[in-house]
């Protein structure tokens, strides 16, 4: 993964919670099986239609609820490239970074529509909407968290810091 992410948008609203992203009833299944049910309460076809690199764009409070890491993990398994939201629920935000799924806070994602093609620059804190010819500013992650995300999460990051080859 690099600091630049390019992909097509799937657009959702506010308060997409962890029971929508990763329903509790499937949580004892493998991540592969669980990912087939991702988002199904509001978008039953999501796991079939999402393509590697696609970007989820949401409103307020994406990932609210449970501390279950399966929420970002199923999205990562489906190779979602990044999530762009107005803001995120705090545990989801940390979990996503810790497993290497880029989460970007943009304040107001209402300019973006489903199907738009976006290019996200994590380091510079900017998003280019290729479809609409627009550019937006985003909150910047501190450099060490960008590095953590780019390396694939906390585990490879710790391994690197501790000098263990992963």
């Amino acid at each position: 993964m690099s600091e630049m992410i390019r992909g097509r948008v799937w657009k959702y609203g506010h308060n997409i919670n962890t029971d929508i992203i990763s329903p509790g009833q499937y949580m004892s299944l493998s991540i592969e099986e669980q990912s087939q049910h991702a988002m199904e309460a509001i978008d039953p076809d999501f796991s079939k239609k999402v393509r590697p690199g696609d970007i989820i764009v949401a409103g307020d409070n994406f990932g609210s609820g449970s501390s279950r890491e399966t929420a970002p993990l199923v999205l990562k398994h489906l190779q979602v490239g990044a999530i762009l939201g107005n803001f995120f629920a705090r545990i989801f935000f940390r979990n996503a970074i810790n497993i290497g799924l880029p989460v970007v806070e943009m304040g107001d994602t209402s300019y973006i529509d489903e199907g738009d093609m976006l290019e996200i620059d994590l380091l510079k804190g900017k998003v280019i909407n290729i479809t609409k010819g627009q550019e937006y500013k985003t909150a910047k992650l501190p450099a060490h968290l960008v590095e953590m995300v780019s390396l694939g999460g906390l585990e490879p990051y710790l391994a690197k810091r501790m000098g263990i080859s992963s």
Partner: peptide, 14 residues
């Protein structure tokens, strides 16, 4: 007291 994810717990346990 607050909730964290499983990966973050790895760092805490170590």
């Amino acid at each position: 007291a607050t909730g964290i994810g499983s990966t973050e717990m790895i760092g805490v346990l170590l």
